[in-house]
Write a protein that binds this DNA or RNA. Structure first.
Lengths: 152, 152
DNA sequence: AGATTTCGGTCGAGATCGTCAAGCATTTCA
DNA sequence: TGAAATGCTTGACGATCTCGACCGAAATCT
């Protein structure tokens, strides 16, 4: 489905999405129209979900991040999910198996804000919050190579 | 530190990092050299951490994601952290307060792979794994507006 | 207050880049 | 065997970016 050239292109673009077609072409050994066509198809197929910009939350004043596990009270699941989606400070949320129904990432500027936001769901769900002290791995894509599990 | 124009630019770029300087200039009411200079400074200051491409893990065959909470055995914290960093299938890892020391996101192609990877840290840490069933909120930046907690 | 420096902006020209059409080779399929 | 489809290249045109020169407002210094 993806050949080596595609993977190569993706790798370069993950590092710098502004790499010009010309440079991309040079690095993978194609002409720029070919690269352009490949990118078009990668987008069309949904492999490339978006070209975007990664912003440092700190630069926006969000000095605190937390991982919040959320267990909605009986019958409140949908209301809670909707609420989470509407609160812009939630920067990520996954619905998971197990006791905790949701695991979410919260960006806040202060402990006070954290409290304020959790209060808004306190009557609809139980939450456990863990403050993030460090980020050993920041968001990165899974390995692009055709395989890799259990190597190094 | 950031004015309205900067925030406006960031908002546009988060949606589409390939927006041309010309278009950006038109949308915020500046000339393109000005926009160019602003972007340069946003990068320089670290506000924009990177221009990147968002890849669909599914397109690479990663049909399964999991949230893994990891509690290293006594004395094994650093070994475990290093191990996690080296395993490319970990797509995110935060060091948090509380009983669980790390919370990580794992991309795998199959349950078998999941087992294989967890086995590699099983003798150095306790783990609890939650399979991701859905993603109500995919990675998004915190609100860019000057404030927002407890609105909407 | 008045002069000066700094900061952020505009304009225009030259260089760079992306896109399009035309054409070619290889593979696939009837 | 031949026709169609795929994926590539080349070359030209138009759009975009970048760089230098210049300008004005605001802050700073004397």
């Amino acid at each position: 489905m993806l050949d080596d050239l595609d993977r190569n292109l993706l790798e370069i673009l993950v590092r710098d999405a502004r790499t010009s077609l010309k440079q991309l072409a040079a690095q993978v050994g194609l002409s720029s129209p070919s690269v352009s066509e490949r990118l078009r198809r990668l987008e069309e197929r949904g492999v490339i979900r978006a070209f975007t910009v990664e912003i440092d939350p700190l630069a926006l004043g969000y000095t605190l991040q937390a991982i919040v596990r959320i267990r909605p009270l009986p019958g409140k699941l949908h209301i809670v999910q909707k609420l989470i989606e509407e609160i812009a400070e939630f920067g990520e949320c996954d619905k998971v198996t197990g006791d905790d129904c949701f695991v979410a990432r919260l960006f806040v500027r202060s402990i006070g804000d954290l409290d304020g936001i959790l209060d808004r769901i306190a009557d609809k769900a139980e939450t456990s919050t863990a403050i993030i002290k460090a980020q050993p791995i920041r968001r990165r894509p899974p390995p692009l190579g055709t395989s890799s599990a259990s190597s190094s």
